[in-house]
Write a protein that binds this DNA or RNA. Structure first.
Lengths: 357, 357
DNA sequence: GTCTATCATGAAACCGGTTTCACGGCGGGG
DNA sequence: CCCCGCCGTGAAACCGGTTTCATGATAGAC
């Protein structure tokens, strides 16, 4: 009843400019309203607005005028339902509070903000069941594509849920080469970092590793190990302590090493946060960086270059990865292909690992 | 044609378990399919799934069985269109790459991830026109509510676009008390920090300020000024240099002060990032922290406690603010009220401003 | 034993668009 | 001059749900 009344308003009152002030109180303007006002059918309105077919220039103008005058804003939901495309991409994140993953998300938001697509986030909490739920929720929202950041789902598990949807993996590789991925060669990054320390004259390098069930952590461990062995040194278990990518685990790591009386002149941390913690623990113990102990991290997050001394780190361009992922997903949605890229991380040497005199 | 064929599949084949393997190739399962399989009308299916009315237990069971067997996943788009609610909240962000704002976004994602609502992000780039566009896009997506993080739109401008939708402001105040807000008293935070430095014996405190058109920066400036004046000191323009919340501006700020020969024994930075830069510039200039110059920042971002020395800072619980915003928005969507809260930031004193001996 | 209130249920309308389809008009070829 | 094909257009079907409405059945009241 009131609806009908308001509908009439849309057609008549607004046109007469009578109730412009209370416009927001009224029902949303639909293409039906535009059709009525401009004297054509809603099919034609749709055609004009989407440019899907040629229409009489006169009617076209009438429609466009009405659209502007009524302040029409298409209902994306209805568009999506009808067309089968939702103009949104689902993003499966793993909220572990890691600056690296956060930066990827931010890059995605930024990268998508120029396009017609909106990101819809769902969080997998780095747990299998949650990841599946989150993915299902995204698919239920009929996203046009899915970006999976990290996570533990196999690509088979992903495809079971996403079906035909285009999928892009970020910060991880695809086990079956089924999906394109934007990843970083963690093994090589760690190898480089370790080699740098070895070449600087360090023989006893400690490693504070990341979560043991985390792919990236494993790869970094392997790279570390390879560099050590290639240098002709024996791999010493005692030099490796477990961490979990947190700053606190860096503190604990150093404390453990010191308490056990392990000797070392350099530390390679699984990520920058861990390196920060390690650096703090070292300074508490009265050890200087880099004079007594050199430190290298992984990620090169923004803050690292401002540490005292500035922290050497393996640069992972997290934000750029997010932005490139956005770009890549738009390509995939445009039916274009996208080839996986594996970024080669770059070692950034700063004063925390300066060559010893 | 193929559609119809597949529809038949949904009803018959799947039921017989014949083509479970290629299930993902087929059309999505709809409530119509469930209705057919379980021998009821789709109205009844809807009622069962939503619990909107009582249904014969037998039929109920049949529907539930079919739902599970066919792996039904409701089309959220259709649900939204029909019901008028989209189960999503729009988030208007300002991607300025500030850890503070990023952390709020992350908190929102995390806080919303347990609920039925999904966040949809749009970016305003801290520019008026873009903010309006972004807001319009969100409203076009028929979000159920809007969270505005920072930004420069007046609440009148916001309400013009959002109409009746519930709106929550985060990290800013509402000019008209029209909308609830979760904000932080920046003035008081800065006042506290400055007072702490004054009480530690510092008389010449430099300020590296934030963007001059940024509300938070202005408030922090005011707090700084008030503390200085209350202490009976004269306010010296020379001690204040412009910054832009970036680490680089912290470096520049210190360099400018030193180049101009301004004497100071303490620095208050507009945010932690700026403080990091300042700290680096000081150390390059051979000045020790805190012995020669004390440093205090604002935000207390995660990394600050691991700086060398650990950085004193005014704690803004960014991530928690995001989480509380999520909570608050859910309340608002549940028709409940939510009162604005102004958080009182807490000064965290660490070694970078330790009392001089 | 009626009459009425209640209840479960299916048909149909609806949300706001897109897309198919059929029809009338018009131009060109034979 | 007639026929065929193309073009612009409106009607109607459709997307996949929710919600209203009408109906038949059942139960309770008198």
């Amino acid at each position: 009843m009131i609806d009908r009344f308001i509908r009439q308003c849309n057609g008549l009152w607004i046109e007469s400019g009578f109730c412009r002030g209370i416009l927001h109180l009224m029902k949303k303007v639909t293409i039906q309203d535009i059709a009525r006002v401009s004297g054509v059918s809603k099919s034609t309105v749709s055609r004009v607005l989407n440019g899907t077919a040629q229409v009489n220039p006169e009617k076209k103008k009438a429609v466009l005028d009405a659209t502007k005058r009524l302040g029409f804003q298409p209902n994306v939901l209805a568009q999506s339902l009808a067309s089968g495309r939702s103009s949104s991409v689902g993003v499966l994140t793993q909220m572990i509070g890691s600056p690296f993953y956060d930066a990827i998300s931010q890059g995605l938001i930024a990268g998508l903000s120029g396009t017609n697509y909106s990101p819809i986030f769902a969080d997998g909490r780095w747990e299998k069941a949650e990841q599946k739920d989150a993915l299902n929720a995204l698919v239920g929202r009929r996203v046009d594509g899915v970006v999976v950041i990290g996570g533990t789902l196999s690509s088979a598990q992903v495809s079971k849920i996403t079906g035909e949807l285009p999928v892009l993996l970020v910060a991880r590789k695809c086990d079956l080469n089924q999906y394109p991925a934007i990843s970083v060669n963690n093994e090589f990054g760690a190898y480089q970092a370790t080699k740098h320390l070895l070449e600087s004259g360090h023989q006893r390098i400690a490693l504070i590793s990341g979560l043991s069930d985390h792919g990236d952590a494993k790869d970094r461990f392997k790279g570390f190990q390879r560099a050590v062995l290639e240098a002709g040194l024996s791999f010493e278990e005692r030099l490796v302590v477990d961490g979990d990518f947190s700053a606190e685990s860096g503190v604990k790591g150093i404390e453990t090493l010191l308490a056990q009386g392990v000797e070392f002149t350099a530390v390679f941390a699984a990520n920058d946060l861990t390196a920060y913690g390690a650096r703090l623990a070292l300074s508490r113990a009265g050890l200087r960086v880099p004079e007594d102990v050199a430190v290298v991290g992984f990620d090169d997050q923004m803050e690292s270059q401002y540490m005292t001394p500035p922290l050497s780190s393996v640069r992972q361009p997290a934000r750029e990865m997010g932005e490139r992922a956005a770009e890549a997903m738009v390509q995939l949605l445009g039916e274009a292909n996208f080839e996986s890229i594996e970024l080669v991380p770059e070692l950034v040497i700063r004063q925390s690992s300066e060559v010893r005199r």
